[in-house]
Design a binder for these strands. Structure first.
Length: 311
RNA sequence: GGCGGCGUGGCCGAGCGGUUAGGCAGGGGCCUGCAAAGCCCCGUACUCCGGUUCGAAUCCGGACGCCGCCU
């Protein structure tokens, strides 16, 4: 997807204020700009409060995409997200509208913005590899090093998931895993301008804590209970979501609620750290710490598309 | 006032003569089909002052500070 069409991305850690900014901007565009969420957990239907999804009211004001794609009982992956994002983008461009990607899931963002060539899946091979990974990870890594030294050099031998995947693809596709792309450490030319929004850690931590307590007041626990007891329950991926994971521990294992709430807040802080370290290394991101200048830059980028937005 | 106990890095917490305990928090890094996931790396701290000793966080004395109990 090489955008000769209006597109811009807004990235940054959770609670940095990207969503509110994006919503205000889209609203101001009078429907010209539509929002595409780049968030691994907002794709699950019913996971609303804890993923800070736009409300019904907000969704009536601005067109949102890539939310509520599947049931939480399903598993969802980058490749599916990439397809959905391509389709949604094309569809909105066809209508002459601009795409504003907003979210904090780094890998999902890169899959779409850099148009990564994501190798397919080979479940039979994978199953065997996973079984072996438990006891003989070192020899799996050795195997990878022989078959695809480049991929091996990009991974840490102790990372079972990544080693298994690289081997799965190499064995299954008869092509080295590394042949699918340069890896995530290299960055190509800017296809879509990425605007980063961040703020002071202390402020972020404070916001995370108050936001989570507010969600609890608004019924997050009920939401989790409902999802967990729904037909299919919550799948492997959905139940990893920060907040959901901790509340499930309370509901299913009887862990003290207050402890789970604290833990969820602490986990959010760790999430912020990882998000930062992910985004920080992409040299193409233009960072802003205040909403107004970020908005000004958004406007500027989109107006470069033949006066797509008027100043 | 007396008696007893304790005083370890941001927090928790082992060690009781000679290795960096460890956990949490925090920081840095890696990762193309679980990514809000997964993986790796990073801490010389023992309240203070004397003493014993080749060597003390560890033993002795004192000071200070906590916590108990007693009068």
């Amino acid at each position: 997807m090489t955008p000769r069409q209006p597109a811009v991305a807004l990235v940054g850690p959770t609670a940095s204020g990207k969503s509110a900014l994006a919503h205000a901007f889209a609203l101001e565009s009078g429907g010209n700009v539509e929002i595409l969420s780049v968030d691994a957990m907002s794709v699950y239907r019913g996971m609303d409060l804890g993923t800070a999804k736009p409300t019904r009211g907000e969704r009536a004001e601005v067109a949102y995409h890539l939310l509520d794609l599947v049931s939480p009982s399903n598993e969802f992956t980058v490749a599916q997200f990439q397809r959905a994002a391509r389709d949604a983008t094309k569809e909105l461009w066809d209508r002459g509208h601009g795409a504003l990607y907003v979210g904090g899931t780094g890998l999902y963002g890169r899959a779409v913005l850099d148009d990564l060539d994501i190798p397919s899946r080979y479940p039979e091979i994978r199953q065997q590899l996973e079984a072996r990974a438990e006891s003989e990870l070192p020899s799996l890594f050795e195997e990878l090093r022989e078959l695809d030294p480049l991929a091996a050099s990009r991974l840490e031998a102790s990372n079972a998931r990544r080693v298994v995947r690289a081997l799965e693809v190499t064995l299954g596709s008869h092509r080295t895993f590394s042949s699918y792309g340069e890896g995530l450490l290299t960055y190509g030319p800017v296809r879509v301008v990425q605007i980063g929004l961040d703020c002071d850690v202390e402020i972020l931590n404070e916001r995370i804590a108050t936001r989570f307590r507010r969600w609890m007041d608004e019924g997050l626990l009920e939401e989790v209970r409902r999802l967990a007891s729904a037909p299919g329950g919550m799948g492997r991926t959905a139940r990893q979501a920060v907040g959901y994971k901790e509340l499930l521990r309370h509901l299913e294992e009887g862990a003290p609620l207050e402890k789970c709430v604290d833990e969820a807040i602490a986990q959010s802080r760790r999430l912020v750290r990882r998000q930062r370290s992910w985004f920080r290394r992409d040299p193409r991101i233009e960072w802003f710490s205040d909403g107004d200048s970020a908005t000004a830059r958004l406007r500027e980028v989109l107006s470069s598309f033949n006066g797509f937005v008027r100043e």
